[in-house]
């Protein structure tokens, strides 16, 4: 369970999060949507402890994230842009991340799923953007963490890899994991997500389950639904 109370974050004069309140129950898959600069990534990064909020509280499975790092054992994170220490080989990178976490991991099936065997001995600097993102996926999914957070996970992936990723996510859902995704790709949302959280100007603007929207979505598509809701203001 992830619980966010009255979260404030500003970068200089720019207020990004303004008293955000959110609770995500365990076992749910949630999409965080919102326009560019609405604070999606900032919120995710706050949960991960990458961004230090000025005010408010975040609890992950009941533990406050402030001045704490051990709770991150329970989270797998797939960041937006995959860049790594350039001189390491893929194999070494995987080993290193395994080394840094105490929990068990199983990268082998993922490596073969994405066909990364032939890249294992290449150094990361030589890899293409897509391959790097695949490595990134392996790093995130090789641990059996109860919470998975993904920031634009499909960027740079080819369609086949994208299908494989979706399949992976579904498997994790089946295991009862809590999953957070930010994305601009509505097909991903429609296919995977139970609930939509829409953030605007640093606050939750609306939160609806996909089932709730289901009828409308079929008529005018998800983008249309969102546009409609936004117009109601």
């Amino acid at each position: 369970m992830i619980q966010i109370n009255n979260l404030h974050k500003s970068f200089g004069k720019l207020d990004v999060l303004r008293g955000l309140e959110l609770t995500i129950d365990s076992g749910k898959t949630v999409a965080i949507l919102g326009p560019n600069g609405s604070g999606k990534t900032t919120m995710i990064k706050s949960i991960l402890g990458l961004v230090i909020p000025q005010k408010g509280e975040i609890l992950v499975n009941g533990n406050s994230v402030k001045n704490n790092w051990t709770y991150r054992e329970e989270i797998s994170y797939l960041p937006q842009i995959a860049r790594f220490p350039e001189n390491l080989k893929v194999k070494e990178l995987i080993k290193m991340v395994q080394d840094l976490r105490k929990t068990l991991s199983d990268p082998e099936p993922l490596i073969s799923l994405f066909g990364l065997e032939k890249f294992l001995d290449k150094s990361l600097r030589t890899l293409s953007g897509g391959t790097r993102q695949k490595v990134n996926v392996v790093l995130a999914f090789m641990f059996d963490s109860p919470i998975i957070i993904m920031d634009e996970p499909t960027v740079g992936l080819d369609p086949i890899a994208m299908i494989k990723l979706k399949k992976l996510i579904k498997e994790e859902q089946a295991k009862g994991k809590t999953i957070l995704i930010t994305t601009h790709i509505m097909s991903v949302v429609e296919e995977l997500v139970e609930e939509i959280i829409y953030i605007l100007e640093g606050k939750i603007y609306f939160r609806k389950s996909l089932a709730e929207l289901n009828g409308t979505v079929k008529k005018i598509g998800l983008e249309g639904v969102i546009a409609e809701i936004l117009e109601e203001v």
Binding site: L48, G49, L50, W69, T70, Y71, R72, E73, I75, Y77, P79, I81, R83, F84, P85, E86, V97, L100, R101, K102
Partner: peptide, 17 residues
């Protein structure tokens, strides 16, 4: 500056900052 990405990778891991 070159290892900023590496650092970003690490800060998301269960490692003390």
């Amino acid at each position: 500056y070159n290892s900023r990405d590496f650092i970003e990778l690490l800060v998301a891991q269960p490692v003390k900052r």
